[in-house]
Amino acid sequence: MLFRYLVAPLLLSGSLAVNAQAQTTAWQGKQCAVVLTYDDAIDADLDRVIPALDSLQLRGTFYLIGSSPVVARRLGEWRKAAQKGHELGNHALMHPCDGTLPGRSFVTPDNDLSKYTVARAVGEIRATNTLLTAIDGRTRRTFAYPCGDRTIGGVNFYEPLRSDFVAARGVTKGLPTAAQADLTNLACYSINGQSADYMIDLVKQARQTHTLLVFLFHGVGGGHALNVDANAHRQLLRYLKAHERDIWVAPLVEVAERVKAQQTAAAGSAPAR
Score class of each variant (00 low, 15 high):
residue 3 F to L: 14
residue 8 A to I: 13
residue 9 P to Y: 10
residue 10 L to F: 14
residue 12 L to E: 13
residue 14 G to K: 05
residue 16 L to M: 09
residue 21 Q to F: 13
residue 25 T to L: 15
residue 26 A to S: 15
residue 27 W to F: 15
residue 30 K to T: 11
residue 30 K to F: 09
residue 31 Q to S: 15
residue 39 D to H: 11
residue 47 D to P: 00
residue 49 V to T: 04
residue 67 S to R: 07
residue 70 V to T: 07
residue 71 V to Q: 03
residue 74 R to D: 12
residue 75 L to A: 15
residue 78 W to F: 11
residue 78 W to V: 06
residue 79 R to H: 11
residue 80 K to P: 00
residue 82 A to W: 02
residue 83 Q to F: 00
residue 83 Q to L: 08
residue 84 K to I: 00
residue 86 H to K: 01
residue 89 G to Y: 00
residue 90 N to W: 00
residue 98 D to S: 06
residue 101 L to R: 09
residue 102 P to A: 04
residue 106 F to Q: 12
residue 108 T to F: 06
residue 109 P to K: 07
residue 112 D to G: 03
residue 113 L to R: 01
residue 120 R to Y: 05
residue 124 E to H: 02
residue 125 I to P: 04
residue 133 T to E: 13
residue 135 I to F: 07
residue 135 I to Q: 05
residue 141 R to F: 01
residue 141 R to C: 01
residue 146 P to T: 06
residue 163 S to V: 08
residue 164 D to Y: 02
residue 165 F to R: 07
residue 169 R to N: 10
residue 169 R to Q: 14
residue 170 G to F: 13
residue 176 P to Q: 01
residue 177 T to A: 06
residue 182 D to L: 08
residue 186 L to I: 15
residue 187 A to G: 09
residue 189 Y to R: 12
residue 192 N to G: 10
residue 198 Y to M: 09
residue 200 I to N: 09
residue 201 D to S: 14
residue 207 R to W: 04
residue 207 R to E: 04
residue 207 R to L: 02
residue 212 L to D: 03
residue 213 L to N: 10
residue 224 H to V: 00
residue 228 V to T: 10
residue 228 V to W: 07
residue 228 V to A: 12
residue 233 H to M: 03
residue 234 R to N: 13
residue 243 H to G: 05
residue 254 E to P: 03
residue 255 V to C: 01
residue 257 E to T: 13
residue 261 A to Q: 13
residue 266 A to R: 10
residue 267 A to Q: 11
residue 268 G to S: 13
residue 269 S to N: 14
residue 273 R to G: 15
